[in-house]
Design a protein around this nucleic acid. Structure first.
Lengths: 233, 233
DNA sequence: ATGCTGCTGTCATGAACTTGTCATAGCCTG
DNA sequence: CAGGCTATGACAAGTTCATGACAGCAGCAT
């Protein structure tokens, strides 16, 4: 799953630049031009990391950070602070209110992505364990391990991501084009029929424990993950 | 092995003095003039004990301690807090956030070294009991000694740290990049493939007692320490 | 200094595994 | 039954990993 990064910065040009380079690295970027918008966005969807400018038109960056740190939900999100001035005093205040890292403008995009990568890796290594369970199917996202009825089953990475996607969005039909977008990424051009093959492989793997009936073919539309088919198992 | 002590203190003169007397006692001393530098240093090399001033130019001492206590890696490092004021309230807050000892300035160097010695002994004493065991694998953290099925096996320091990390975080996949971060430190730039080689060496060592099957390769993702693979042994 | 030893990071190579594509067979709908 | 859609097996190219070899380095005793 792509990591979400929220970029809070008032200058549109800088936002664009940051967005561009982060998306190239495979992150999803949300943009906010002020603190108000930022908090609205976060209320709807908590990002994995936040990039916050020092100077914002409404609330100051440090104040915004302080507020995020107060909230249970956002407390542990890593924050990188951006500032125009490279004055030490700023850095000091930034770290004091709880920023995890600090970069002064003009920002080298390479540095930016490097720091972000490091922070995300770090926080990811110890976060709460994520496991998806539907009926007998158990997908341990941290271990990268599928077990069905307690039996470990090996999957290729594509099948793994496919199953992860299905388990996160059960019950809905997805066209081959949609699956390609979500799982392979938006800029890959692959035969739609290839999806069939991976569905086949996933089914084969699940069949080892007779759990392949949860993947339904919807003729003319695509595929659907049917959780209800698994309830009896 | 010399014990490493990190001294976080903004006044250079005091740092010098402390360094001098600690080195005379046979410790290695790292210096940081503020919290930011301190965290960078610790990211690369975890010290055996930290000496933290109450007043730092960026983050306050207690806040810095709180952060170290949150992080898995630095949680168990003994911390001595230094303060100019000898007010009881400070001491209370210092101990509250997790300092192990508390000294008020001006510090008698004799007292300082005595307390440090005591803390290190104590933490050593604790960790003397600290032994990681998974199935037949037994890692004595003090003796720096690995035994499998009662047989001692020699490991290089890197393999040792790798195994220690795995045993402390079993069941989760870690990418090569993450392993580099956590074991080599964040600012080291080493080929990712090097991780493979150390995994190989660790496996070879464990294979002497047929216990190498606990280290799983997760293609495209990294490596995982599987404790369940050892339960039958 | 000198040579020795053990450890570490890097690299080249071959092995093992994945994956996208295609051809063909099978199935469903009207 | 035809036409369109899907399932399946085979395969070659491309990735990723395991492994042995090697040079540089630090520690150590000589």
């Amino acid at each position: 799953m792509k990591k979400q990064i929220l970029c809070v910065e008032d200058e549109a040009a800088i936002r664009q630049m940051i967005r561009f380079s982060l998306e190239r690295e495979g992150y999803t970027v949300m943009e906010a031009e002020n603190a108000y918008v930022a908090r609205e966005l976060v209320a709807n969807q908590t990002p994995d990391l936040m990039l916050i400018d020092w100077m914002l038109p409404d609330i100051s960056g440090p104040e915004l950070i302080r507020r995020f740190r107060k909230d249970e939900v956002t407390r542990d999100i890593p924050i990188v602070m951006l500032t125009a001035r490279s004055e030490e005093e700023d850095m000091i205040q930034g770290l004091e209110v709880g920023a995890d890292d600090y970069l002064s403008k003009p920002v080298s995009l390479k540095t930016l992505t490097a720091r972000i990568k490091a922070l995300l890796r770090r926080s990811e290594g110890f976060s709460a364990r994520k496991v998806l369970t539907v009926g007998p199917i158990n997908l341990d996202l941290d271990a990268h391990q599928l077990t069905v009825n307690g039996q470990a089953i090996h999957l290729g990475i594509t099948e793994y991501k496919l199953l992860e996607f299905f388990m996160k969005h059960p019950g809905r039909v997805y066209s081959r084009a949609q699956l390609l977008d979500f799982i392979w990424g938006q800029n890959t051009y692959i035969e739609e029929r290839t999806v069939d093959v991976h569905i086949l492989r996933l089914r084969k793997a699940l069949k080892l424990q007779e759990a392949d009936n949860c993947i339904h073919t919807v003729r003319g539309a695509g595929y659907r993950f049917a959780e209800e088919a698994l309830n009896g198992l």
